[in-house]
């Protein structure tokens, strides 16, 4: 019966590690904050689902458009993704290039000023972007659209007829690109400037030029940060309401034609434009489109996570 003595005494409480009051308070606060996020997220999801049930279960003919919620939301999803993808395609290379210029090419003083100016872009309210896009960018793009229709009309993107107001999907995408530029360039700048000197020196000592050093030691290190920044930007572009609502001329359904005046709307802009005049089932339908946007954004973020983690071994974090 000697084993009795050596048996771990499971019934007893495990010895509590000594922790200071401050430590416990902070642990409690941060845990609470983490839980709060989950509660809010769950609350939003529950609200969206509950409120959109009416529209989902309603007969197709009664839903706005007369063909059911799915055909109502389809063009909106397409428009949302198209505008966001245009924005991302323009803003990501530009943002990365700006970040590289600021961190590795520009003289110190210019770098600081430029960084400050880029950050300032983020402080401009989206309604201002909207009016700028409507009043300044759209008209100035009209000649380009006409030119594109004549010379690049064989591409589906420039099939035309070219818009005479310039309020096209491409204009909306470009406005969104400028809006998400500060997010992407700020995050890229941050990760690029943290690329370890150790590896930058390793590249230089092998006889790398500055650009080769960036390719070997900075970009691979910053890749996941850039993807993260791009996804944050994409999130903003997907959800941006006012600027798109002001700029985009909406009529019609799914089309890849970027320069005509008949464009699908985006989910967020459509909600903003339709909501004041809606009641009953219309409201439920709009909330359903909101639910779809919620799911899209969630999926985009999960995809980004997956992309970032796929080659975690090689990430440089170890």
């Amino acid at each position: 019966m000697t084993s009795l003595d050596t048996k771990p005494r499971k019934a007893d409480k495990p010895a509590r590690a000594v922790r200071s009051a401050g430590d416990r308070t902070f642990a409690g606060l941060s845990t609470g904050a983490g839980i709060l996020i989950l509660v809010v997220l769950a609350g939003v999801a529950a609200f969206l689902i509950a409120e959109s049930l009416d529209a989902i279960s309603a007969p197709a003919a009664e839903v706005p458009g007369g063909e059911g919620v799915w055909s109502y939301v389809g063009p909106l999803v397409f428009g949302t993704l198209l505008a966001a993808v245009i924005a991302l395609l323009v803003a990501t290379p530009l943002g990365v290039a700006i970040a590289l210029f600021i961190t590795y090419y520009a003289p110190k003083r210019i770098a600081a000023t430029l960084g400050y100016l880029i950050d300032l872009l983020a402080a401009i309210p989206s309604v201002v972007y909207g009016f700028w896009g409507l009043a300044a960018l759209a008209p100035s793009l009209v000649p380009f659209y006409a030119w594109a229709e004549r010379n690049l009309g064989f591409l589906p993107f420039f099939a035309g007829p070219a818009s005479v107001t310039g309020r096209t999907m491409l204009t909306a995408g470009l406005v969104l690109a400028i809006m998400i530029l500060p997010i992407i360039s700020a995050i890229s700048r941050e990760v690029f400037s943290q690329a370890p000197a150790l590896h930058r020196e390793a590249a230089l000592a092998l006889g790398a030029t500055r650009w080769e050093m960036i390719k070997m030691a900075v970009l691979p290190y910053g890749k996941s940060g850039v993807i993260g920044g791009a996804m944050l930007g994409l999130g903003r572009a997907l959800g941006e309401t006012l600027a798109v609502a002001i700029v985009l001329s909406v009529s019609g359904g799914i089309t890849f034609d970027l320069i005509s005046s008949s464009n699908p709307s985006t989910i967020a802009a459509n909600i903003a434009l339709q909501f004041p005049e809606s009641s009953g089932l219309d409201v439920s339908t709009l909330i359903f489109t909101g639910l779809v946007l919620f799911v899209i954004t969630l999926a985009v973020n999960m995809l980004a996570r997956y992309v970032v983690n796929r080659r975690a071994d090689f990430s440089g974090a170890n």
Partner: peptide, 27 residues
């Protein structure tokens, strides 16, 4: 100059984003 004169540093600094093979042929 640096292509002719190799250097090894105080702290080991293989490129973390490259495989062993790619590290060797990086230069």
């Amino acid at each position: 100059v640096r292509r002719q004169i190799g250097m090894v540093f105080q702290r080991p600094n293989p490129f973390p984003t490259m495989s062993i093979y790619d590290n060797v042929v990086a230069g």
